[in-house]
Computed example of a mutant assay.
Amino acid sequence: MKSGSTLFLKIAVILMGIPILALCIFLVPEIANFAAELYPDIAYLKYLVFIDLYAAAIPFYFALYQAFKLLSYIDKNKAFSELSVRALKNIKYCAIAISTIFAVGMPLFYLVAERDDAPGIILIGMVIIFASIVIAVFAAVLQRLLQEAINIKSENDLTV
């Protein structure tokens, strides 16, 4: 396969990472300061918000890296290999981790939404949780299909 055939998807993966990086640099400190202003008696709330949102960014970027590696495997005609299965498995685990981190952080979102009277904050958290679950299920299905295709391919190689 030509090495540039997945160039558009690689650019899309990079472009998906840039807004999240901007959010982590500029918006997360504002959200943490806002939460600290809403609850001045709970001083550590600011740091919990930092931990929750930055901890979710780590598996996100690892999943983007795995997607980039998967696209590189496709360029090198290694799409039907154990490396691709492993990349999909890592993407699945990252999506589960993001969903878990946000589910654990939902009480923080609830506290901020309760005091600020903004139920949309909880809705945003729920959308992120369910989107991550959908990505995890999709990656698991692709992983299983790819593993089955590899098994069929290896059986055909042995019979010929």
Score class of each variant (00 low, 15 high):
4 G>Q: 10
6 T>L: 03
11 I>Q: 11
14 I>W: 10
14 I>F: 13
15 L>C: 09
15 L>A: 10
16 M>G: 03
16 M>A: 14
19 P>G: 00
20 I>Y: 08
22 A>P: 04
23 L>P: 00
25 I>M: 02
26 F>N: 06
26 F>G: 09
26 F>V: 04
27 L>P: 01
34 F>S: 07
38 L>C: 09
38 L>E: 11
39 Y>I: 00
40 P>E: 03
40 P>T: 04
48 L>W: 07
50 F>H: 12
50 F>S: 00
51 I>F: 12
52 D>I: 12
53 L>K: 07
55 A>Q: 06
55 A>Y: 05
57 A>W: 07
61 Y>H: 08
62 F>S: 09
65 Y>T: 14
66 Q>R: 08
66 Q>W: 03
67 A>G: 08
71 L>H: 12
72 S>V: 04
85 V>Y: 06
86 R>W: 08
89 K>S: 14
90 N>W: 04
93 Y>R: 09
93 Y>S: 06
94 C>Q: 07
102 F>H: 11
104 V>W: 04
107 P>L: 01
111 L>K: 08
113 A>T: 05
120 G>D: 08
124 I>V: 14
126 M>I: 15
127 V>A: 14
127 V>Y: 13
129 I>H: 08
132 S>L: 05
136 A>T: 12
136 A>K: 14
140 A>Q: 15
143 Q>F: 02
144 R>Y: 11
144 R>T: 12
146 L>I: 13
147 Q>W: 10
147 Q>K: 10
147 Q>C: 06
149 A>V: 00
151 N>C: 03
154 S>E: 15
156 N>T: 03
160 V>C: 03
